[in-house]
């Protein structure tokens, strides 16, 4: 402050400047460090999961990825069944959820009266807020019995007798199983895909749509001929986002998938996913055991899978994010 007092008129008071630049340096450093911390978190997850899974990778080698054995007694572990279950439930969930999500987004952007858009949109978003474990209980106590009593017997008798795809819908109607898990997953990712679709549909310049309407197009023709071609890359990104969510969903799947370590050809059969195996078997694995390492290796595989899908989703959605 002494310097400031002696500074001549017209020069900038340097100490004031110095203290503010000190504050700026500290604040900028704090912000940058926080950004670096986020990178460390992701790096830490990758490294810790890989190191934890290393003993299992060493013992079983690359065949760990497709071996279907999981025997804690003889300590032979393979990821084949759970990788298969993870992918098949997630893909089935996408197949079930995308048409529904598209319908919801179509309704919210083109068909719904203005006053109804916000409440219906909020209701769909609330569906995304319901915790995973609630979906699990709801699926186990309400949906699984309905599936066992009505839906699955009906499908076994009808679709199950069709040629070519009939074998997918055979077997006893347990209620739980791959199909029910995919159904619950579909309901859980529906709001994510619908919200992304709605947001990108809303970014279509109104003048494009008005031109098409001016040519005499129906609402569906505008959607099919203008909105979808304009937004198709972002829509694919939204679907990828849903897929990424479906791959790692744990609690809901654990409740309804039936938890059996075998690959069944019928969709009504029990199975497991990477996440459900980790959640269920973790409590029974001792510290330092090969089983725990196998579970961490599974976690690493799940991380790689969802990282690829989520990175792809980001890549496809980037044009929207930049806008």
């Amino acid at each position: 402050m002494q310097q400031a007092a002696t500074a001549s008129v017209g020069t900038i008071p340097r100490p004031a400047r110095r203290s503010s630049s000190l504050g700026d340096t500290i604040f900028a450093a704090a912000c940058t460090a926080a950004g670096g911390f986020v990178l460390l978190l992701l790096g830490g997850i990758i490294v810790e999961l890989f190191l934890g899974g290393l003993p299992a990778f060493r013992t079983f080698g690359i065949p760990f990825l497709w071996s279907t054995e999981w025997d804690p007694v003889t300590e032979v572990f393979g990821a084949g069944v759970s990788i298969y279950g993870t992918i098949i439930t997630a893909v089935l969930a996408i197949l079930l959820a995308v048409p529904l999500a598209f319908g919801v987004a179509f309704y919210l952007t083109e068909l719904a009266p203005i006053w109804l858009r916000r409440p219906v949109g909020t209701a769909v978003e609330l569906l995304a807020a319901v915790p995973s474990i609630i979906y699990g209980m709801w699926g186990f106590f309400l949906i699984a019995p309905i599936m066992a009593q009505y839906v699955q017997p009906f499908m076994i008798d009808s679709v199950g007798t069709w040629p070519v795809i009939g074998f997918l819908f055979e077997g006893p109607p347990f209620g739980t199983g791959i199909f029910t898990a995919a159904l619950i997953l579909a309901i859980m990712i529906l709001p994510f895909i619908a919200a992304t679709m709605r947001d990108v549909f809303e970014q279509v310049p109104p003048v494009f749509k008005e031109s098409a309407y001016g040519l005499g197009c129906t609402t569906w023709e505008v959607m099919k001929g203008v909105v979808l071609p304009y937004t198709r890359i972002s829509v694919a990104g939204g679907i990828m986002l849903g897929l990424g969510r479906a791959l790692g969903e744990t609690m809901a799947v654990t409740f309804v998938i039936g938890n059996a370590n075998r690959i069944t050809t019928t969709l009504f059969g029990p199975g497991n996913t990477i996440a459900s195996v980790i959640a269920l078997e973790f409590g029974e694995s001792e510290i330092g055991s090969l089983k725990l390492s196998a579970l961490l290796a599974l976690g690493f595989i799940l991380f790689v899978l969802s990282f690829i899908v989520l990175a792809l989703s980001r890549f496809l959605l980037r044009s929207r994010l930049k806008a």
Binding site: V38, L49, G244, G248, T250, A275, S306, F307, L310
Partner: peptide, 8 residues
């Protein structure tokens, strides 16, 4: 991280 599986 926003969409990564929470179990991991």
């Amino acid at each position: 991280l926003l969409s990564a599986p929470s179990i991991l």
